[in-house]
Design a protein around this nucleic acid. Structure first.
Lengths: 190, 190, 190, 190
DNA sequence: GATGAATGAGCCTTCATTCAT
DNA sequence: TATGAATGAAGGCTCATTCAT
């Protein structure tokens, strides 16, 4: 008996992300995914019940993946700025390295494939960041602004950086990264 | 293509935007657009050569529309902060009021309907802002950071605000708007 | 504007019946129906929402059709035997002439396309016959057996005749028809 | 194809019949049969070359099965009416008890799985009955009607009884069975 | 022999586009 | 110009069959 090849799921995900980047979500056909993943169309349906399930599964995988990256090496007990810097860099690096995933999330978010419940999950992604910002406010290091807006400010600016790096083929060097961090830091600091 | 009924184009655009918000770009079918615009399918093809033309035209209309709004009431000769504040508010208001258009631009940008040339056009949108920032730097009011990153910072954070207002059904009051502006301003100021 | 051609429905029905006879219900593909009816596949979906609807509609049309034929020229006030003979002949002729319809009903009945509700309708087909048999019993011309079994007896034997005429390519002449009627009549008569 | 496990064939047949009753012949997929029979898909192909072979084999098994039942306890030398009654009851009981098989035969008969040759075989099923009827005619007990029509009459009416018992969930008691036999007997008797 | 993952042709259905009115 | 029926290619999905284990 042929063994079910769990690695195939990774290949399917990769193929899907590549297609989303190349043609947008509307260009993602099961046929195209299968071809890109070098499997037969029918095989897709062994691993995913249908297209919706494939998209939703990948969406959740991307979300989970993000969460893992954002708080890597983050020490909740380190000084506020150290922690904030770590997370800021993590988010930026994740967005840059996994730009396809960000793009996919953005495109899938408004598609009929993602239902409300999954979206609710996605919104919990930044909890640890919010806790850090709360601490920052207690320590009078951060402006007294609702975390909701502070995270919007931080994430929004990072997203735009990664978008531009990709669309304009810009290179980022450590110096430029520092400048960008400074913009954000000066923005939130009390 | 002689366009008799300019108003019909507006209805078609409106219908398209509504559908994108409701179902994503993949839910935009010529049939659905026609129905929503209350015209016959064939009529669509009197006004637009094909689907690609419709999407591309709407895309360009949205871009043009943005540009018009962003610099409304903007006086290039006013003091820097006044000008910057005006533009910041204009961009925010435009994104909020015309959220469907932003969504459409986001979704269409990666679709096969928008070719590279149109994207290049879109990128010129912020020229006046860049000039203002250049002046701000000359006047030592703004950090010495490439306009490319300064605009990314400003636009990215505004985009995220409008996105959240929509997804989380948040209400913005003048006070909150001020706080958000403060974040941005403190970020860019020298 | 092209006018919707109601005659197309007849062509679709005819094509479907032909295919059922040739290949059974499982050989009825929308593609094959369209080809046989000389229209495009998509056109089928203008006239029928989906395959299920097509099959169910045809089923109901066949049932209605049967009812119309069975009691054609039947006079409820004529002497019992005349009435019975009329109906018996009508049913036989209908089954013979419209064998494809009978076949279709038989095959569709057990398919997932026909839901319970439609079946219930189909069962009401023989009401006038039952009334006639009731009268026959009152007049002591017919055995005192439940109409349910009397009609089963009559219809079952007629069905088998038409089946055999078709499968064995038998010809029926008036004499043979008379003999067969005699079998049925002697069966039910008191 | 060496068939090791004869019992598995029985399970496959049973599964197929169950599926035909539940969903019609079009619902019979090799996957579904395998699942219902609790074997792997591939295993089906050890016992049957392909789907056509499976259907055709089952068809022939059902025919053979019928023949066995129809003339069980039938003594060709017993008085005519006794013999006729025996066969009539046998056919009825078989149809009732093995309704699924009748259904399958009905559905499969028109499918592309059963070729002409098999159908010819099936038609020989009633030879002993025909011989009995010939004797009945010689003894002036039966109408002088071609056996072809006499058997059609008998079988057709029995089939309809069993169909109705199943579709209308009717119960048959010995008395009702007797009444139905009487209808048939009065029909054929000289 | 037994398994069930893998395959890809083919089915149902949709949709961009055309065309007769 | 406006209409919407008609078209058929293409997309989502299924299923008979094969094959590696």
């Amino acid at each position: 008996m042929k063994l079910r090849d769990e690695n195939k799921i990774a290949r399917i995900y990769k193929a899907t992300l590549k297609l989303v980047k190349a043609t947008g979500l509307s260009g993602v056909t099961m046929q195209a995914v299968a071809k890109e993943a070098k499997i037969a169309t029918g095989t897709l349906y062994i691993y995913f019940q249908n297209k919706e399930t494939l998209i939703a599964s990948l969406f959740q995988a991307c979300i989970k993946n993000s969460q893992g990256s954002f708080f890597k090496n983050y020490d909740a007990k380190a000084p506020f700025k150290v922690g904030f810097h770590t997370i800021w860099l993590n988010v930026l690096h994740h967005r840059l390295l996994r730009f396809e995933e960000s793009l996919f999330i953005e495109q899938a978010f408004h598609s009929p494939y993602i239902d409300e419940q999954i979206k609710v999950e996605a919104k919990k992604m930044f909890e640890p960041l919010k806790e850090l910002l709360a601490r920052g406010k207690k320590e009078h290091l951060v402006k007294d602004v609702d975390n909701f807006w502070l995270t919007a400010f931080m994430i929004g600016s990072i997203n735009e950086i990664s978008r531009r790096v990709n669309y304009y083929n810009k290179k980022l060097n450590p110096e430029v990264i520092d400048l960008n961090f400074q913009l954000c830091w000066d923005g939130i600091k009390a």
